[in-house]
Nucleic acid binder design. Sequence first.
DNA 1: CAAACATATGAATAAGTGTTCAAATGTTCA
DNA 2: TGAACATTTGAACACTTATTCATATGTTTG
Lengths: 119, 119
Amino acid sequence: MALTDVENCEIHEVHEDNVRRVTEKMPDEDVLYDLAEVFKVFGDSTRIKILFALFEEDICVCDLAESLGMTQSAVSHQLRILKQARLVGGRREGKQVIYYLMDEHVRTIIASGLEHVLE
Amino acid sequence: MALTDVENCEIHEVHEDNVRRVTEKMPDEDVLYDLAEVFKVFGDSTRIKILFALFEEDICVCDLAESLGMTQSAVSHQLRILKQARLVGGRREGKQVIYYLMDEHVRTIIASGLEHVLE
DNA sequence: CAAACATATGAATAAGTGTTCAAATGTTCA
DNA sequence: TGAACATTTGAACACTTATTCATATGTTTG
């Protein structure tokens, strides 16, 4: 059909086959939303730094703040976000709370991002 | 030394060894920044949808807008961001601009994010 | 060239985000 | 129990960001 060869969005009510194929394969709305939420958590350099720190060792908020050169309050706020995303966990040891990586996926995700950055 | 066993941030000017180890292994500031920037681009469900669409086929802005049920203007704005991040590219074909995935890393990154989401 | 179409862009707006400051909570130890 | 320390929390603020609307740019075709 010659009609489909005419590259025109309006007359053919967009290219129906393309739109249909894309729509069919599109994941559920909630998956897309969750996916964006995860990446949003990684989309802040303070949180990235915290994760790199936790790659090395379990560490208390105080040392994290010192390592990152940031307010302990700021670090604590970011730790809450990481905890809500189930990326890190915290265990109390005496007066201190020791944070640790909860999910090895973190390493995979950051590694895949690094691949893109380092070229 | 008994001193290092005392869990106290203040007296020992934080746990120096921990802080030093973390600081040593921390990537350069600009790498951390770029990394966060990349993830920031993935941290929006509209852009995620666009990328999933491009997994299926090269597609024009008009069809993208139709597939996603969004304004063509909104889609165009997001495409600009994806293009600046060198994740997608656009080639003009007649009146239309066909967008395509520029970087196979995109699939890797989204796959690693999906792993975390789907459990 | 003018009309029609596809896309891009700029300004405006509303919603979201990270840090700071002050204060609250939780824990240890004398 | 009370003083000292570690962490958390809430409100406020400045700063981003995504979408919309209007308009501009670029392309084809009669």
